[in-house]
């Protein structure tokens, strides 16, 4: 069944109509979600208006980790099943994963200054998220160092899978260590600790960010597939010409 969906031609046909749907939903939901968060969500009792930063910070953090997980699953499938589309997905998710990790770190710092009194602290959650950003940048740099796509894919996949150990560290760092960063409260096994007036706009912004990520991933995958088709066709033409 996986091979059926791992066909680049089928992906191109599917993403042709799915991409505008995701992009449209992502843009509309992100714009309305941010307006909701900035102008309509009430101030939090202790954090005041500063809590409005959470409506970007939390979705960016969660979707950046989901983006890294996408890279890791793509890498694993490429290494085990040798599916090119899995490598295309891993490679294409990296720039958005890096951008979302960056947004998470920057908005966290901008929230930390008025709330904690500092932009940065070498706390386990913050440090592991910074490590994720460096890992993704390292993955992109490593891939670009190879000339042959297969070598780049293999080396990148190994690095990505080794780095995947950081995902549970980010998630559970607030439980395993005594951190300044607060523990999970938005979505937990026992429900949410947030009141409905904060929970729903946060959930809405999370879905908005997921649609944005989905659209950017599909667009980047389409570009990569077409680039590979171009390279293959060019090589074929050169062979037949010589």
């Amino acid at each position: 069944m996986f091979s059926t969906f791992a066909n680049p031609h089928r992906f191109m046909a599917l993403s042709k109509w799915l991409l505008p749907v995701f992009a449209g939903l992502g843009i509309i939901m992100l714009a309305t979600g941010w307006i909701w968060a900035i102008f309509f969500v009430p101030e939090e009792q202790y954090q005041g208006a500063t809590a409005r930063i959470m409506y970007i910070h939390v979705p960016a953090a969660m979707v950046s980790m989901a983006a890294y997980a996408t890279m890791a699953v793509g890498s694993l499938l490429y290494l085990t099943l040798k599916h090119t589309l899995a490598d295309v997905a891993a490679k294409s998710a990296a720039p958005t994963a890096a951008a979302l990790s960056f947004i998470c770190l920057i908005t966290g710092a901008l929230w930390g200054r008025p709330t904690w009194g500092t932009y940065w602290i070498w706390d386990a959650r913050l440090t592991s998220m910074l490590f994720q950003l460096f890992l993704i940048l390292g993955y992109m740099a490593l891939r670009s160092a190879f000339q042959r796509e297969q070598d780049a894919a293999r080396a990148g996949a190994i690095l990505c899978l080794v780095g995947a150990v950081n995902l549970p560290i980010i998630k559970f760092s607030v439980d395993w260590w005594n951190t300044l960063h607060q523990p999970a409260g938005f979505i937990t096994m026992s429900g949410s600790s947030l009141a409905g007036e904060f929970f729903w706009p946060l959930l809405y912004n999370l879905f908005a960010m997921m649609f944005v990520f989905g659209a950017l991933l599909m667009a980047a995958m389409r570009a990569d597939i077409q680039n590979r088709q171009y390279e293959a066709k060019l090589a074929r033409l050169n062979r037949s010409g010589s």
Binding site: Y46, Q47, G48, A49, T50, R113, P114, T115
Partner: peptide
């Protein structure tokens, strides 16, 4: 006890 200097950061 509420943080009230956040506008520019937001």
């Amino acid at each position: 006890g509420q943080v009230n200097s956040g506008d520019v950061f937001i």
